[in-house]
Structures are given as structure tokens and as C-alpha cells.
């Protein structure tokens, strides 16, 4: 085969790959991360920025809270996001329409979980970090790996890498549908399959004891992205309230409650030093029937959480 013929074939193949990237870009316009970024760019000044991961997204009821407090909540909490993404989204919000305050929900020991190094983690909703500020993603997730550094840069530039889950999720949903043929349907909610979330409860009672003791005795700072996010808020004049999100009754059994309470007391003290309030909602929902799975409350649970949060809100604001 002559080189010219090979060149033509390679060019046509390359053109198809370019078209594939264009198709991904068009499909990705409906992704929650993209819609969230657009919404945050048009954030109304003075809003209450509701921030965090899926535990906050599932638990917060905008209408109930707005009616009870007179606040203008803007829900920016997104499933499957981590502190690096929260930092990026908060920075975008503070630079767009400045929110009056931020309500940040965390689960477990997330305040102290340092980011891991890997470019692959920026998928699904986490592509928002690649869309907003790849440099921050690199700073926290490629600090000692030139490969991860380059791949984050490449993924930020190429839709087929950055928003690969637009297609992959469709294929996975098809695979799950085919796997369920002829079998009882698998329990699922708006975030995914109920059984899968058990894998995300990453701490055993022994872990709760070990992590609580370690965090309290070392008195170490929160993870880097959250330290930066709280500093940004302070500099922007945004009042921050942190919420320890409700825990499913099976996640924190009685034998670890003293460790957990000591941990929450420690976090409260550390946040107070920065002028940040903590609302401990760990025990607000004690019935299993008010949860969708081991992490997320259902609609009735969200009503209970939001009503309690609204009751605490004016008191918490008055006493930092």
C-alpha cells in the first residue's frame, strides 16, 4: 500500500474521532455537571449556597426551607463529588453572583480525607473540575505524577475523555437492563442501585475508633481543598455553616457513638476557630424507613431533615 493511501485512510479515521468528540459535546449539554456550572454562573446574589455531595442533594428540600426561613436557597450539591470539586464550584459561585452564605454538608470523615492521585477519578459529575479549573484538579490530584498531570490536561481538552460517561453510562444502563432480564428487578433510586451504596460506607466500627482518635490526637487541619474553600469564603465575606449529615442507623452503631461524638466535638471546635458553625444532624433521622439506601434519605426523610434544619437555622446564625 502506498503511503498516500495510508494517509487518506488515517485521515478519515481521525475525522470520525473528531466527529465522535463533537457528538459527545452535544450530548454532554444535558449532564448535571454542565447544567450546574451554567446555573452557578447565573447565581442570584444574596442566595444561600447549598453545597456538598449526594447526601445533601437528597436531604435538602428547597421549598420547605425557603418558606420557613425566608432564605433563597440555591442547591449546588451534586452526587459523586468530592472536596476538590466542591472547592471549584464554590470558587465559581463566589466569583459569579456572590452568595450571602453557604451551607456545606459532609458525611463521615470526608472533612479529613486527602485527595487521591489519579486522573481517572474525574468522571461523571466530577468532570466539573475539568470544566471549571483543571489546574486545581492537578494541584490536588496529580501532585507527584507527571502522567496524571498530563492526562488531566488532555482530559480537560478532549470531550471524549472529559465527558466519557455520557456514553459509558448509557452502555452500563443497557448492560444492567440485559443482566436483569428474567430476574426480579434490582432496587434503585435516582443516584444508582441501592445495594451498590453499601460499598461507599467505607468505615467499620474499628475505623470510626481509629480515625476519631487519630484526628483528635494529631489535631491536623482539614483536607487541603476544604481549607482553601473555607478561606475563599471568608475572604469573599460568605458566611459558612457546616452540617454533619444524617447517618443511617446501621452505619454508626452504639459501640462507636462515644468516638463519633468526640470527633464531632473536635470538628465543632476546629470550625469555630475559623468562625464557622457546625450543625450536627447525625441523629436527626433514626428510622431506616426514612432512607433510600444506607447513605441517602428519601423524600419523607428530606422533609424531616429540612424542617429540623430550618428550626436550627436562626438559632445557629445568632450564635456562631
Amino acid at each position: 500500500m502506498k503511503p498516500r493511501a495510508f494517509f487518506i485512510q488515517a485521515s478519515i479515521a481521525l475525522l470520525l474521532i473528531v466527529l465522535y468528540n463533537v457528538a459527545i459535546t452535544l450530548l454532554a449539554r444535558q449532564m448535571p455537571a454542565r447544567k450546574m456550572i451554567d446555573a452557578v454562573r447565573h447565581l442570584e446574589p444574596g442566595a444561600l449556597f447549598i453545597h456538598g455531595n449526594s447526601t445533601m442533594d437528597a436531604a435538602f428540600n428547597d421549598a420547605i426551607f425557603a418558606k420557613a426561613t425566608g432564605e433563597k436557597p440555591f442547591r449546588a450539591a451534586l452526587g459523586a463529588t468530592l472536596p476538590v470539586d466542591h472547592l471549584n464550584l464554590a470558587r465559581l459561585a463566589f466569583n459569579s453572583g456572590k452568595p450571602r452564605a453557604m451551607l456545606y454538608g459532609f458525611y463521615g470523615f470526608q472533612l479529613y480525607e486527602d485527595p487521591t492521585n489519579s486522573w481517572r477519578q474525574f468522571s461523571g459529575n466530577r468532570c466539573l473540575s475539568l470544566l471549571i479549573d483543571p489546574a486545581t484538579a492537578i494541584r490536588y490530584s496529580a501532585s507527584n505524577s507527571i502522567v496524571d498531570h498530563l492526562m488531566i490536561r488532555l482530559a480537560a481538552a478532549l470531550p471524549a475523555l472529559r465527558e466519557r460517561d455520557v456514553i459509558w453510562f448509557k452502555v452500563e444502563k443497557l448492560r444492567r437492563a440485559l443482566a436483569d432480564v428474567g430476574l426480579p428487578s434490582t432496587a434503585a433510586n435516582k443516584f444508582g442501585r441501592v445495594a451498590d451504596f453499601k460499598q461507599l460506607v467505607l468505615f467499620t466500627p474499628q475505623d470510626v475508633h481509629r480515625l476519631s482518635q487519630s484526628i483528635i490526637s494529631s489535631d491536623r487541619p482539614f483536607c487541603g481543598p476544604l481549607v482553601e474553600m473555607f478561606d475563599l469564603a471568608k475572604n469573599a465575606g460568605v458566611e459558612v455553616t457546616v452540617v454533619a449529615m444524617p447517618s443511617h442507623p446501621t452505619n454508626l452503631p452504639l459501640e462507636v457513638r462515644s468516638d463519633w461524638n468526640a470527633y464531632i466535638a473536635h470538628v465543632t471546635k476546629k470550625l469555630r476557630q475559623q468562625g464557622i458553625r457546625l450543625i450536627d444532624a447525625t441523629d436527626w433521622i433514626s428510622e431506616e424507613k426514612l432512607f433510600e439506601d444506607v447513605l441517602h434519605v428519601n423524600e419523607a426523610g428530606a422533609v424531616r431533615f429540612t424542617e429540623k434544619l430550618a428550626q436550627q437555622w436562626p438559632v445557629s446564625r445568632a450564635r456562631p
Partner: peptide, 19 residues
């Protein structure tokens, strides 16, 4: 190449599929 890319996500561990 496109077909390989479309199906290569199956090695990922999907938990959240919310879109």
C-alpha cells in the same frame, strides 16, 4: 476505534449513575 471507546467504560466501577 469509536466502538472500542464506547464499550471500554465497562471496566469502570459504576456506583452513581444519575444521568
Amino acid at each position: 476505534l469509536a466502538a472500542i471507546w464506547v464499550f471500554s467504560g465497562q471496566s469502570s466501577k459504576f456506583i452513581y449513575i444519575d444521568f
